[in-house]
Design a protein around this nucleic acid. Structure first.
Lengths: 158, 158
DNA sequence: ATACGTGCAAAGTATTTGCAAACGG
DNA sequence: CCGTTTGCAAATACTTTGCACGTAT
């Protein structure tokens, strides 16, 4: 099944791109066109996208870029904790800006229509922190995936 | 990084294999040697394994099996909700018996040593149910992945 | 000037598919 | 028997790597 995207969460960080570019500069990395294009693309997205989607979109803007550069940029950004890599169960890795504060979101995958719906829940975050505490593990990130039917498919099934 | 396994959760369902074989029979499916071998292997494992690991283990017992049969069996079992497919962030799909009752577990991935530690938490399950309720989604399964350091690596780092 | 960044093409893995032979009921 | 299941090999899909050339600093 093809997995698509539903944009329901509007609050993506306004200036994640700027922060990311600064972080790279602080690392002594240069500012070539491809990595910058990937960062700008990610910063404009409210939810996760695959390397292929990012590549296609950037090419669609008429820019010349290779898919290898997309993967290389993503790898570096993940390494610096600026990007979170997400695997939702269809064998394709997706990537989205990692937000430092409480703007974290998770994903609901609709097994009927394949769409991805982001959601967030403060109680869930608190519970996860408590669980990590109990396990005595140094939790650096976490990821929750709900599988089922999205609200739209549930309604349509009536 | 290579991801390995830590076996810390002992309570895997005693007779999952039997139930799975019955379900297949009820579906009118036949009982060939390869699918049965995959089911018996899964039933004996406390945590998730990749298709390649399952294949290697079955071959190691001297049985003749093709990796395509492993993938085909897993696909059917996932379809019937007898097996849960899990992706932990390294691009390899893993599979484990899906337990109907409350014996569900989740995964802590140690980013230092690569091991996978299963854990369970009743409070977490309740929170997830509540979240699904609030989202009005028909939740059929869910998956939580914690990334960080396992207790052993935290201790070693002192 | 020099080391890092990039595009392309080739290689590497994980997974799926085609097919003829083997097998279960 | 007849349709399912299987092993093998080939094909596919996603991702990584090698390398020569371009570019930022």
């Amino acid at each position: 099944m093809r997995i698509g995207i539903i944009y329901n969460v509007s609050g993506h960080h306004e200036n994640w791109s700027g922060r990311a570019l600064e972080s790279l500069q602080a690392e002594g990395l240069r500012n070539g066109g491809s990595r910058r294009a990937v960062i700008e693309h990610l910063g404009a997205q409210p939810c996760c996208h695959s390397a292929q989607e990012i590549f296609d979109d950037i090419r669609g803007q008429g820019k010349r870029i290779g898919i290898a550069s997309v993967y290389r940029a993503l790898e570096q950004l993940v390494e610096l904790d600026l990007v979170q890599r997400v695997e939702l169960g269809d064998g394709i890795a997706r990537f989205e800006p990692a937000h430092a504060g409480g703007e974290h979101h998770h994903h609901l995958v609709c097994d009927d229509c394949g769409r991805i719906e982001p959601f967030s829940d403060p109680g869930l975050e608190k519970t996860l922190t408590a669980v990590a505490e109990r396990l005595h593990c140094g939790m650096r990130s976490h990821e929750v995936i709900l599988h089922g039917s999205c609200a739209a498919c549930l309604t349509a099934a009536l």
